[in-house]
């Protein structure tokens, strides 16, 4: 499958500080790729380099097979959408007025505004001024702006960081629908559950370096400790290994009708991240 993004040995240094170092990965077309890491791990720096907002100190980055420098060409910018933590909106204008501006810049009909507002569950609030919106609503308007032109490649930097669970779920469904229509999504987040729910593959970024890169399911298998937790009828919990010895013990417990529930001890992406980096998610 063709790559939407290809990154080779990417590094960005600020004086003595290494924001990212030797970052290497590929994102396939049509994929939802999660770039995970705590605050300050280099996620936003990577997005900024990939969208032409920042020059890399070392390495190369390609978007749709062409160097990111091609994004300096305005026409090429039609192919991607960006939502970053510092995306700005015009506070004195309404939500609709903000989105209509971008419709005109992208040469789209104004009807796209309604579609985008529906996507972020803000159809009823279109006439509200941006300056009166909550952080979560502003975030949703920014997302609406990023998906307005249904880009081939969408960069999302912490898209649901300020959202409540209902709207988060609404956005997840919208992103899946967008992905089904062919949009490749590059998602940075420190929310491991979000990555687990949405992403086909994830990369763990820690202190500017990629520590792991694989499918969430594969990582869970790889880091599973091979045990199950059995809750007995007397509410006691015991851990059994998933081997012949554990199977015999389980068989015995079941025979004695003492098993209430059985839980697989599969690690979460958060557990794996902490194990790999020795750090905590912030």
């Amino acid at each position: 499958m063709e790559n939407a993004i290809e990154v080779k040995g990417l590094a960005k240094y600020y004086s003595n500080f290494k924001a990212i170092e030797d970052v290497q990965f590929e994102v396939k077309k049509g994929e939802i790729f999660g770039f995970l890491g705590p605050s300050g791990s280099g996620k936003t720096t990577t997005i900024k380099i990939l969208t032409g907002q920042l020059n890399a100190t070392e390495g190369e980055a390609f978007v749709f097979g062409e160097s990111v420098s091609v994004l300096k060409n305005p026409t090429a910018r039609k192919r991607f959408g960006v939502l970053t933590d510092n995306s700005g909106l015009y506070g004195r204008l309404s939500i609709i007025e903000n989105l209509q501006l971008y419709c005109k810049l992208y040469d789209l009909p104004n009807s796209k505004v309604d579609e985008a507002l529906d996507f972020v569950n803000l159809k009823e609030a279109g006439k509200k001024k941006i300056s009166t919106l909550s952080k979560g609503m502003t975030q949703r308007v920014n997302l609406a702006r990023a998906i307005l032109h249904e880009p081939e490649l969408l960069f999302l930097d912490e898209p649901t960081s300020a959202l409540d669970p209902v709207n988060t779920l609404h956005i997840y469904n919208g992103l899946r629908a967008l992905n089904n229509r062919g949009t490749t999504i590059f998602l940075t987040t420190h929310d491991m559950q979000e990555a687990d729910v949405l992403c086909n593959r994830v990369a763990f970024l820690h202190k500017g370096k990629i520590q792991l890169l694989d499918k969430p399911g594969e990582l869970k298998k790889q880091f599973a400790d091979g045990t199950v937790t059995v809750e007995l009828s007397n509410n006691e919990k015991i851990v059994l290994r998933k081997d012949s010895e554990g199977a015999e013990e389980m068989f015995q417990l079941m025979k004695e009708n003492r098993v209430q529930t059985v839980h697989s001890n599969e690690p979460t992406l958060g557990d794996i991240f902490v194990k790999v980096t020795g750090g905590e998610l912030v």
Partner: peptide
């Protein structure tokens, strides 16, 4: 307000 960045990232 970072709105200039939005314009810079648009096709304009």
């Amino acid at each position: 307000k970072n709105t200039l960045r939005g314009l810079m990232l648009s096709p304009a």
